[in-house]
């Protein structure tokens, strides 16, 4: 796996802009799918411990890249995110996402960059008998590359990264049913509003007395 110098510089810049994790997709050259030319952010909610992409923003990202003439294998195979701290190893959450989201693609790559500069890259093939392997990471200076653009990178970060706003859930775009007033609109497919992950997250605390909640750090 190789990064263009500009893509690598951008990733380092984005990693260091805040105190949280940050994630995006690696966009590659058409003829070299392991050569990352850009790292593109989507709207996401981030904490120092986690990053959650907004589903609608992911769909918008797909639309934008297709409109640019790119194929999904160029923009939706390399999942990039950072880890504050010194450990680039994937967590259980990372593995769950990599398996569930990228397990249906013919191949995918999980790349993690830690705060101290260590990185982790694992390539997985889902076609045929399948298989996976860690792969080396390098910055490739042999091709022409654009200059750094901190203003644009900062603007992209500001437009997409929302830090630790657990309670401001980002849902699908305004749902409407222009065809009927009587029949409630039920979107086909995943419905973030109906998802219960926050209930799951806070569920164990709901039965605890207040003092135990304080002891566990949920009230500060």
């Amino acid at each position: 796996m190789r990064f263009s110098p500009a893509a690598w510089a951008k990733l380092l810049f984005l990693r260091d802009l805040g105190e949280t994790e940050v994630g995006g997709f690696g966009v590659t050259a058409a003829e070299d799918l392991l050569f990352v030319e850009d790292v593109v952010l989507v709207k996401q909610i981030c904490t120092p411990l986690s990053v959650v992409f907004d589903d609608v923003a992911v769909a918008d990202f797909f639309d934008q890249q297709v409109d640019r003439g790119l194929k999904p294998q160029q923009f939706a195979r390399i999942w990039v995110h950072t880890h504050p701290g010194d450990c680039p190893q994937p967590s259980d959450t990372d593995e769950e996402t990599f398996g569930r989201v990228f397990g249906a693609t013919d191949w995918a790559l999980m790349f993690i960059l830690a705060q101290n500069g260590q990185s982790y890259a694992r390539l997985r093939f889902n076609a045929g008998p399948g298989g996976e392997m860690p792969i080396p990471v390098a910055v490739d200076y042999r091709r022409p590359f654009p200059a750094s653009d901190h203003d644009a990178w900062r603007a992209e970060y500001s437009a997409n990264v929302q830090e630790e706003e657990f309670f401001d859930r980002i849902g699908p775009a305004a749902l409407s049913d222009p065809g009927s007033e009587k029949k409630p609109f039920v979107p086909f497919g995943f419905d973030r509003d109906a998802d219960v992950w926050l209930d799951d997250w806070f569920g164990p605390f709901e039965e605890l007395p207040l003092m135990e909640e304080v002891a566990l750090g949920s009230h500060i």
Partner: peptide
């Protein structure tokens, strides 16, 4: 029409 099926719940976390 433009029809898209895109992934959901892309989430990462520290180990």
């Amino acid at each position: 029409d433009r029809v898209s099926f895109t992934p959901v719940k892309i989430e990462g976390a520290l180990p």
